[in-house]
Design a protein around this nucleic acid. Structure first.
Lengths: 240, 240
DNA sequence: GCAATAGTGTCTTTCAGACAATATGTT
DNA sequence: AACATATTGTCTGAAAGACACTATTGC
């Protein structure tokens, strides 16, 4: 039996303390493609590289509270739901010293993306060019001009995992509504699903499936300003 | 902007260091029900309560390496795959001081359960009486005699999440084979699925579905020692 | 032969994909 | 009216549940 056995548990002070931080993937859909909000680093290490917004976890701060604090202070988004993604703890993931990071995923509606970009001009909205086969391979992160960004630390890996998680949940969870305005058309909802999956979907089948879930409710009102027949607006019904 | 902004990132030493530990859910199926291996605590806090095997993460140790170390030292299981489950970081989850724990899930075949119980006599194999509706509510943790155990820290919550995760993966991932011997009958596989889901399944449909996935291969050999027609033995084909 | 379980065939229902027809706005 | 998109109807094929039937072993 090693030295870290159960008796060691009784004396936690005998063991190492690590820096713990949270990093938030602020993900949305823009121009028909998944995107994420990033900051450009000014100092070493990885100066000039893009990075996820993040911050250290305080000694008396729950992980989720730290995530909410980063969301509020770095993106001006006080009330966004946040889901834990994964914890990354490779020893050398930060070249300076040992830092364990708990990654979180927050989904943003278009208005929230614009609000965040305005609240912090240092933010940039990067397009995620996912693995097109639908697999879980690498992704390309592109700046608004379309040139590839290189990311700090293991943040590209975190982004890839976030996209994979979002794809996985699309089929069985009431996700996707967080990526839309409160009122939306079925076509907009389908566009979001197609953007995240990277594939096209059958329109009648998608419509049937979404209505059958009971997750959405027709509002009786219609979109305006189109040059053709306006579609009915739906809203998310909330959880069962 | 708060004090933990990006410039703080450049000076990690200015921030708090936390104790980080790993806790492992060693899960299996025994007597037709999901079970997990636990240790009984000898000292405060939670003396006499059951707890997950765990240990602190070393300063120069990756999270996954720490999990493997615990698996090896506390259960005598050197080569068990381990999947990250969730990270728990409520401030008061340990009454003594702030400890963040990264929980991992390892699936054990019947032989591995017995090997672990033999390697460490302090281990106990607890039955998990899941939420029967299939939801994600609370679970009951029972000792071998069937009396309810109370768990230390937030470990009951961790166990409930582990069971929920396992249930969720059952339908789309090649899980379940880790819970069986290398050669198994389709009935054994179905029993494992039923034990984890807590429901019964349709035999022909289950058989069709499993064979159609291509995950399993018939070996041409049959089980022995039955008092009735012996079933064909299959083995897991590995990943596609 | 009998008991018990393995393994298969088939019917029905459900659901997704495909495709076309109809509806309803704008210009 | 012409056009563009919304919305609906229907056909078809794939897969799951239900149920009963056949197969094979030990006793």
């Amino acid at each position: 039996m090693a030295d870290n056995d159960i008796s060691a548990r009784e004396d936690p002070d005998a063991y190492a303390r690590l820096s713990v931080c949270v990093d938030i993937v602020l993900m949305g859909v823009r121009k028909g493609a998944p995107c994420a909000l990033l900051l450009r680093r000014g100092a070493a290490p990885f100066a000039g590289h893009a990075a996820l917004p993040g911050g250290f976890v305080g000694a008396q701060e729950a992980l989720e509270d730290a995530a909410q604090r980063v969301l509020r202070d770095k993106a001006g988004l006080p009330d966004v739901r946040c889901e834990q993604l994964y914890t990354f703890g490779e020893v050398a993931r930060d070249p300076r010293r040992r830092i364990v990071t708990v990654a979180w995923l927050a989904l943003l509606a278009p208005a929230a993306i614009e609000a965040a970009l305005e609240a912090n001009p240092g933010l940039l909205c990067a397009t995620l060019d996912g693995p097109h086969g639908g697999g879980s391979g690498d992704i390309a992160v592109l700046d608004p001009a379309g040139t590839r960004l290189s990311l700090a630390f293991d943040h590209e890996q975190i982004l890839a995992l976030a996209l994979e998680r979002l794809r996985g949940k699309l089929d069985y969870a009431a996700v996707g509504f967080d990526l839309l305005p409160p009122f939306f058309t079925l076509r907009q909802l389908q566009d979001v699903h197609e953007a995240i999956r990277g594939t096209t979907l059958n329109k009648p089948a998608f419509r049937r499936r979404m209505i059958d879930t009971g997750w959405i409710v027709p509002t009786g009102t219609r979109e305006t300003g189109t040059s053709h027949r306006p579609a009915e607006l739906y809203c998310f019904r909330g959880l069962s």
